[in-house]
Write a protein that binds this DNA or RNA. Structure first.
Lengths: 318, 318
DNA sequence: TTGTACGCGTTATCAT
DNA sequence: ATGATAACGCGTACAA
């Protein structure tokens, strides 16, 4: 538990000199710096983070707020963030749940990235008003302390619908996410825009909630009144897996009787049979761009909102 | 940016009274407390976390150190941790990478849980010597400030081997994890103990590294000199998936020509065909027990090391 | 109720 | 080149 003044006493210098020496100031000679550093090591000196933050008003910590951690998707996202942060001497800490928001409020972190629908827009803006720098990944907000980095959901939906409509189908089912979901809304937007090019297609929306169970339930409805091949766009892969699971218990063949496209390119989509056609994007790049923008925001550099590129992965399901 | 003294000035009380009022001390009357709280809200007062920790010497933050976040397994583990922590007014922050260890050293967290082989035993013990409370999930250490919560790897390996040897095979291949892995070593131990009951079985170890690619490469070796059905115990599911992937390109049938058992019960193991037989455990419970023990350690209650129960999930692969 | 001091590292200022 | 001191900011113990 040695403190800076223990070092000062043992080294025979003042606490100012010790602090300067330890922090690489040019105000001390190399000789004294070496002596002081050696004694600090002997005493196993570790500075108290709280005291340092108190003065420095920065922590070199960035928070990422997630609603849940499930899904290997987050691994890549966080990897991208860590890569850009560590290069710049910052730490990433992953937070979840209402409680941990105090870490942002109380200035225990220099900035935050939010991918968590349980934050309200008002709450985020109130943080920004207090001077906190924030990147949002799941909504659009305009504020000098907020920057937006989004998936190109609309374009993804457009590609997906076009891929499905290359098949000679008359009906297109769209299985959506839960009510409040930004991704679901944006993807649905893209679907509607694209469908205006195909007036002959009958489009049917089925409300889902991004889970496998929702996919199964949706399939039940899709099969009611089935007469000829139909197309199904699941607004995420998880639900597409649910569709697979249901159809396995029937005689319908995916890629012949029912065409399916998902969104996200989760790991599972590669292993289900036949391989799911889906919309893919680099979660790594998403994370990397988000933190890069946050660092720019912290250093008062100007930045523009960004979109993350998406592309079609061709499977046998469509 | 209002501070405690701004409130004191505006309310016409001293900073001590304000602090007492805000922190629920009985030293102030309810009337003054209400007045002070109202003014604090008007000024949008938020206490400075750094200053608070400085005095309190605790942060109510627990760190979990992971080597990587990939795999949906971590979702459940972290959920279990959050559940027990939030009930007790603690926060969980997820850390990864060498840099973030300073958060523990500098007392920015009250304790830590470690599931990260890149920590050396010496390093962990040095933290414990400095008074930090630590739970380890991936090694055995004895220290008054360290508690151990482990998977029952040996028992899992025993069950797995016994399930495989119910089939009339003469050869058992064991595909291991990477050199330093504690899990791999312990599971291997369990295998060896169990095998001593079956002296007629020929056991062959193949070094893997817990990735799908390692599973594929191992399969190549297994098929060399194949003459009759064999058993394969992959020390994790990821590698078992690799075995599946390789065998799909051949005429061998899983569950008839080759019996396979994995370990971990990852989500994918349910979806590959035929369903993988594997060893399952509750990651949620693992996390819950770990944090519970950490809180007890922090409050100087006595605890013993614990083991997390494992069980066999029967698939068609064995 | 109030004033004051302490804990702690960093850094600006002013002295030596 | 070094030293002494204050400020940062909150919570709490102590004396008044």
């Amino acid at each position: 538990m040695a403190g800076i003044k223990d070092i000062a006493k043992k080294a025979g210098y003042s606490i100012s000199t010790v602090s300067y020496a330890l922090n690489g100031s040019t105000k001390v000679t190399e000789a004294t710096r070496e002596k002081i550093i050696k004694i600090a090591q002997e005493l196993e000196y570790v500075p108290n983070g709280a005291a340092r933050m108190l003065r420095a008003r920065e922590t070199k910590i960035i928070g990422i707020f997630l609603l849940d951690y499930s899904g290997s998707f987050y691994g890549q996202l966080l990897k991208g963030m860590r890569e850009s942060l560590n290069q710049n001497g910052y730490e990433l800490v992953v937070c979840s749940g209402k409680q941990s928001r105090r870490l942002l409020l109380e200035k225990m972190m220099d900035g935050a990235i939010i991918l968590d629908e349980s934050f309200s827009n008002e709450e985020i803006i109130s943080y920004a008003d207090l001077g906190h720098k924030i990147i949002v990944l799941d909504r659009e907000l305009h504020h000098e302390n907020i920057n937006v980095v989004l998936l190109d959901n609309k374009r993804g939906a457009e590609i997906a619908v076009k891929a499905l409509l290359e098949k000679a189908v008359k009906k297109l089912f769209i299985v959506t996410g839960p009510e409040g979901s930004y991704d679901s809304k944006q993807r649905l937007h893209g679907v509607e825009t694209t469908l205006s090019l195909y007036p002959e297609i009958e489009a049917i929306q089925i409300r889902g909630n991004f889970t496998k169970e929702a996919g199964e339930k949706a399939t039940e409805r899709i099969l009611q009144g089935y007469t000829e091949p139909v197309a199904v766009f699941c607004l995420n892969d998880e639900m597409a897996v649910g569709v697979y699971r249901y159809l396995k218990r029937t005689d319908y063949v995916i890629g012949r009787d029912i065409y399916i496209v998902g969104f996200d390119n989760i790991e599972l989509s590669e292993y289900i049979e036949p391989r799911l056609t889906t919309i893919s994007y680099s979660a790594f790049k998403w994370g990397f761009v988000a933190t890069n923008n946050l660092l720019k925001l912290l250093h008062k550099q100007s930045i523009a909102d960004e979109k993350i590129h998406v592309e079609l992965i061709n499977g046998k399901s469509c």
